[in-house]
Design a protein around this nucleic acid. Structure first.
Lengths: 332, 332
DNA sequence: CTGTTAGCGCATTCAC
DNA sequence: GTGAATGCGCTAACAG
C-alpha cells in the first residue's frame, strides 16, 4: 500500500537520503559498489520516485499538453499518434485536452496549465478563436508553445502546417482538369487561418481558369450544414463539383448526393480534405486531399522539445510546412 | 516570467501564506472581506497554484491516465471523448498512453505511473497481454483501476464492456436470416477476452442453426491479414458471408472483395464490429455492430471517480455491460 | 478570524 | 565518496 521512497531505501541501506538519490541518478561521485547496492534494492522494492516532489524541486514536469478541438477525427488522432511517438522517446508524459471548438473552454484550459503542470504545449485552436491573449500569456510565462494545423497568423509561435493554399489550388485544378466548371467550395469558419488559406488556393485556381468562385459557409451544427448542402445541390444552377474544406462536409455531401440520387462524379464531382483511409471504400471511392497528420504531430513535438531543451531554433524551424497529397479516386 | 505564488500574494497583502491559501480555497474561517481582497489580487496577477506542490502535499494529483492500444481507431477516440467529458466535469486532467499492442510497453507505462502521478487508471489491454502482474501492483498500491472493452477475465477490477457474446450472436443470426450458410468469423488474438466472447456468440448461433463454424485467425500485420483474407475468398468453398470481429478486418474484407470483383452482398455478405459512421457511405453501405464507445468511456470514468472518491461500489457497478447496436445496411 | 510551524519527497549545496 | 541541511510551494495541525 505504502509507496517506497528515498528515505526508506536510505534507512534499509544505512545510507543518507542524498547518497541514495545520487546513486539512482548515476552521479559520478558515488562508488560503483554503492550504486549497485542502491539500485538492487530499488529494483527489488519497485521504487519509483515521486513525480510531484521531483517536479516541484526541479521546476519541470516531464509532461507536455496537447490541446485540440476534437479527437473523433482521423486527422487529430493521427496527430496524437505522432505526438506520442516523440514524447515517449523523450520519456515525457502527454496530457490531452479537448476544446470541443469552444473558445472559452480553450482559455480555461490554457489558464490552468500555466503554472508548472506542463513543460510545453501543442495547440490547434478552436474555430472560434480569434484573439490570442491566452497564448501570449505563455510567452510571458516562458512556457514553449508550438501551434499546428489551425494556427493563428499573428502570433509568434513556431507553426507546423500543411501547404493549405497549394493543396487547395491543386485540388481545384484537378477538378477543373476533370471538366468541372461550377465548383463550390464548402468552408468552415473563415477566421480560421486554414480556412482562408484553403479558400485562397481555391480562388486562385478559379481565377486562373476564368471561372466564377463560389463559397458555401458551413458551421458547427451538422443538421444545419446538411440542410444547406442539400439546398445547394437542389438549386437550379447546381454546382458540378464540390470541394470540401474539411472532411465532415465531404461526408455530408456524399450523404446528400446519395439521398438526392445525384451521381458522383457524373452529376457532381467531390473532393475534400480528409484523412479517412476508408474513403477508398466509398461509393464511389472518394478523392481526397490527405494531410500528413502523423508527420505534423511528430514534427510539432520535435520542435517543442528543441525549445524545451533550450536548443536554439533555426529560423527555418519556425514555420514548417509539410505538403498534403491529393489521392485521386473515382469521385472526380 | 516568474510565476506568482502564495508567498508573494501574502506579502503584498500583509497576510500569512496560510491565510491566503485558505481564502482562495473558500475556507469558512476566513472573513468575507479578506477573501475578497485575496481573490481580487490573485485574479489580477493571474495566480495559479503550483500543482506539484499541492499534489505533493495532498498526495493526490487530480489526474487520471488512460492506457489504450491505439488512438487511430474510432472506437478508442470515442471512448476518449467520453473520458474527457467526465474528467473535465470533475476538474481532472487526463494523461494518454498508447501501447501500440505492445505488452512490454504496457508494463513500462504502468510501472512509471505507479507512484502518485495519477489518482486512477483506465485501461484496455493490448492484444498480447495475458498475465496481469502489472495490474495487480496497482491493487497493492491502492490505486483504482477500471478496465474497459478489452478486459482480463481473471482480474478483480470493475469492468465496462459491451455485450460481446450477445451482439456477436445476433449479428450471426442476422447473417443467417439473410440466407448465409457458410459464415467465416475473422478473429484477432484469442487471448483477448473480447475475441473469445465474440467467437463464442458466433459459434452459439451457428450451432443453434446447425451450421458449421469456421474461424480465420488474423494478426497484427495488415499485409498478412490481407493475404489470408484474399486466399479465403479465392478458395473453392468460399464463404458466403464474413463476420469481422474488429473493424480493420471488415475494411480489408471490403477491399479484397472489390479487388476480386466479388459482389457484396451477392457473393459475400459482410458485417463487422465497427464504430465508423462513414460505413454508411461504403459501396455498398456496410452493416455494422456498433459499440457504445462514448458511453463506455463515460461510464468507466464515472466508476473510476466513484472509487477515487471512496464511495463504495455496488456489486452491480463492478461489471457494467452496455449493449451494442446492430446497424443493418446493404452489405447483408 | 489569522498567524506560526511543520512536512510532503526529492535534488542540491555545502561540509567533511 | 558520503552525510546533513535547505527549500521548491503548498496545506494542515495547532495556537491564539
Amino acid at each position: 500500500m505504502d509507496n517506497v521512497n528515498l528515505k526508506q531505501l536510505a534507512k534499509e541501506l544505512n545510507l543518507a537520503v542524498s547518497t541514495v538519490s545520487r546513486a539512482l541518478r548515476d552521479s559520478h561521485e558515488i562508488s560503483p559498489e554503492t550504486k549497485e547496492r542502491v539500485k538492487a534494492l530499488a529494483a527489488k522494492l519497485g521504487f519509483q520516485p515521486n513525480p510531484h516532489a521531483s517536479s516541484l524541486r526541479q521546476s519541470k514536469s516531464k509532461t507536455i499538453a496537447v490541446v485540440i478541438p476534437e479527437i473523433e477525427n482521423n486527422f487529430f488522432s493521427q496527430v496524437m499518434n505522432g505526438v506520442e511517438v516523440i514524447a515517449q522517446q523523450k520519456g515525457y508524459h502527454v496530457l490531452i485536452y479537448l476544446t470541443h471548438e469552444d473558445n472559452n473552454r480553450e482559455k480555461d484550459i490554457l489558464n490552468v496549465l500555466r503554472n508548472g503542470r506542463v513543460d510545453g504545449l501543442l495547440i490547434s485552436v478552436s474555430n472560434k478563436t480569434m484573439e490570442f491573449d491566452h497564448l501570449l500569456a505563455y510567452q510571458d510565462a516562458g512556457i514553449p508553445v508550438v501551434s499546428f494545423d489551425r494556427v493563428l497568423d499573428n502570433i509568434d509561435t513556431p507553426k507546423v502546417t500543411t501547404d493549405d493554399t497549394e493543396a487547395a489550388f491543386k485540388a481545384t485544378e484537378h477538378l477543373i482538369a476533370k471538366g468541372a466548371k461550377r465548383i463550390t467550395f464548402i468552408s468552415m469558419g473563415l477566421n480560421l487561418s486554414i480556412s482562408s488559406r484553403r479558400k485562397a488556393g481555391y480562388e486562385k485556381a478559379m481565377h486562373k481558369h476564368h471561372l466564377h468562385a463560389s463559397t458555401l459557409e458551413c458551421g458547427t451544427d451538422d443538421n444545419e450544414n446538411r440542410a444547406m448542402i442539400r439546398s445547394l445541390l437542389q438549386s437550379k444552377d447546381r454546382p458540378d463539383a464540390i470541394f470540401a474544406a474539411v472532411e465532415k462536409f465531404a461526408l455530408i455531401t456524399y450523404e446528400v448526393c446519395h439521398s438526392l440520387h445525384l451521381d458522383i462524379p457524373g452529376h457532381v464531382k467531390v473532393i475534400g480534405f480528409s484523412n479517412l483511409s476508408a474513403a477508398a471504400l466509398f461509393n464511389p471511392p472518394m478523392s481526397t486531399v490527405v494531410q500528413p497528420a502523423f508527420e505534423i504531430g511528430k514534427e510539432a513535438t520535435a520542435i517543442l522539445f528543441r525549445i524545451i531543451e533550450k536548443k536554439t531554433l533555426l529560423s527555418a524551424e519556425k514555420v514548417i510546412t509539410i505538403p498534403s497529397v491529393i489521392v485521386e479516386r473515382k469521385s472526380t
